[in-house]
């Protein structure tokens, strides 16, 4: 070995050491890890650019029970900020205490989404927003009555005029305003993100091991990918039907392909510690039960996604995975509920 190559070689060793300490567990694959960083830009819709007036209007509409037939239910009744923007129920409760067939997903980071609902039947937040207002078993509101009602409220007349000048109070403007507000509901600083930025003590050793399992042995990253821990894709992970509930075909209702039977959209894992119960039908109460599900390789084996298999995790490894998921909770909820327009 010449002197020059020796020098070069030791230089490489130094670089490897520096990178090694920076990521703490030297066997992390950088490319695999970097995908979990937040995109630098705020996600906006080109056809509905955000403005403070639009967000303020959307926020009022989101919290306003006058958007429902009975004037008692708002979007926030089910997507409650105090409960991780979900409702803490196995499946949602709608109009007249009716039990809906699916769980309420969080709306956190829905700005990053490209397909919405457990079966992916909606393609944008604008497209989604009017659905629950008019659904009989949800807010059960007639659109004509809603437009009339909102126009009698002076505060709303002003807000719509500010937000969408010249458009008037229309279903389209309502949808766009709500979507604009939803795009501001994003998870903030989490211990996981602080750790990834180099703060070694932001998370426990168990959580670090859990992340390693997530990327490796347990291969959760086959589906829970990117900043929002979802591939925006559809998978059948073999979740059982809850006793007394009808079988749910999930994505197959939208796309009649064999593999889509019982497939559901991969949910985000950000804020997941706050959004129990889990799965489209709320079958699991704890993250421990969820990890056990994956460890078994799912329950309903026909049409199972090919990435699902028994994981043979040790008790400690299961704990580590749960500890990791708990580091995905924003440090605090900084949110002021709006005073509604009169």
């Amino acid at each position: 070995m010449t002197r020059r190559t020796t020098v070069a070689a030791s230089f490489v060793v130094i670089i490897v050491c520096v990178i090694g300490t920076a990521v703490s567990a030297p066997n992390f694959n950088q490319a695999k890890v970097e995908q979990f960083q937040r995109l630098p830009q705020i996600v906006e819709s080109p056809s509905n650019p955000m403005s403070p007036a639009r967000v303020a209007l959307g926020k009022a509409l989101f919290f306003d029970p006058r958007l429902s037939g009975s004037q008692s239910m708002s979007c926030a009744s089910c997507h409650n900020p105090s409960l991780g923007w979900s409702d803490g129920l196995p499946t949602a409760i709608g109009q007249g205490m009716s039990k809906l067939r699916r769980a309420t997903p969080t709306i956190v980071n829905s700005a990053y989404g490209s397909v919405f609902m457990w079966d992916g039947r909606k393609h944008s937040l604008e497209d989604q927003a009017l659905g629950p207002i008019q659904a009989k078993d949800e807010m059960n509101m007639d659109m004509t009555i809603l437009l009339e009602r909102l126009s009698t409220i002076k505060g709303y007349r002003e807000m719509f005029d500010h937000a969408y000048p010249g458009e008037g109070i229309t279903p389209d403007a309502i949808a766009k305003a709500i979507a604009s507000f939803e795009r501001t509901v994003v998870s903030t600083n989490t211990p996981f993100d602080r750790w990834r930025r180099g703060e070694q003590r932001a998370v426990s050793d168990a959580a670090k091991r859990g992340f390693e399992l997530f990327l490796g042995k347990a291969d959760c990253v086959a589906c829970h990918q990117g900043f929002n821990f979802t591939d925006e894709g559809f998978h059948n992970i073999g979740v059982k039907t809850v006793d007394g509930m009808k079988d749910d075909d999930g994505r197959y209702e939208q796309l009649k392909l064999r593999g889509m039977k019982g497939a559901f959209k991969t949910p985000t894992l950000r804020e997941v510690a706050l959004t129990a119960p889990y799965m489209h039908n709320g079958i699991y109460t704890t993250l421990e039960e969820v990890v056990d599900h994956y460890d078994r390789g799912g329950d309903v084996k026909d049409n199972l996604d090919i990435s699902m298999r028994p994981l043979k995790l040790s008790t400690q490894e299961k704990i580590d995975l749960v500890e990791f998921m708990k580091t995905l909770t924003s440090e605090r909820l900084e949110f002021a509920v709006p005073r509604l327009p009169q």
């Binding site: 490209s114 397909v115 992916g120 591939d231 925006e232 894709g233 559809f234 796309l255 593999g259 889509m260």
Partner: peptide, 11 residues
């Protein structure tokens, strides 16, 4: 013309 997609990842 044939439009080809992936059922898992609709985009």
């Amino acid at each position: 013309q044939v439009f080809v997609e992936c059922a898992i990842h609709p985009f």
